[in-house]
């Protein structure tokens, strides 16, 4: 920095670091949290539509089962399972467990695998049992 008075070393910026699973998952936890907060608005809309009556409810269902609706629902379901699984990982950390580097990476991959499994399972169930959403 030109205006820097003392030539102290600056800590390197984010793009200097090699991407790590740990930092990536931490940022993703926050990003999915914000994204899911937006998703709560859909829950509100869906409940209000149901309270309004059959016509409004049908309108909501049509909107949600459209291409964009399904894409958003899929993204929200993935985010939900990620935030849920990684949130449980965070709760273990809060309790003081799982700080060994090996454990941190193991639980990290476990969270990713569980997220994929739960998301796939949820949509497979929705489609096999009901033939759609």
């Amino acid at each position: 920095m030109a205006t820097q008075q003392h030539k102290r070393p600056l800590s390197p910026h984010l793009q200097i670091y090699r991407p790590q699973l740990t930092s990536f998952m931490s940022i993703t936890h926050r990003a999915t949290g914000v994204f899911l907060s937006l998703g709560t608005l859909v829950l509100v809309y869906w409940l209000m539509a149901a309270a309004t009556g059959p016509v409004a409810y049908q309108q909501a269902q049509t909107l949600l089962s459209s291409g964009i609706g399904l894409l958003l629902l899929f993204a929200w379901s993935f985010s939900l399972f990620y935030h849920l699984c990684n949130g449980i990982r965070h709760l273990f950390w809060d309790a003081g467990c799982g700080f060994e580097i090996k454990t941190v990476y193991f639980t990290g991959y476990l969270v990713l695998a569980t997220t994929l499994l739960f998301t796939a399972l949820a949509w497979a169930l929705a489609f096999t049992v009901h033939g759609g959403v």
Binding site: S77, L80, L84, G87, I88, A122, L125, A126, V129, H130, G131, G132, V133
Partner: peptide, 17 residues
């Protein structure tokens, strides 16, 4: 939220269509 959301997601899947 752990039990509440698992229940809710399960119900939504059940209520699909």
């Amino acid at each position: 939220l752990i039990p509440l959301l698992l229940w809710f997601v399960g119900s939504i899947i059940h209520l699909a269509r």
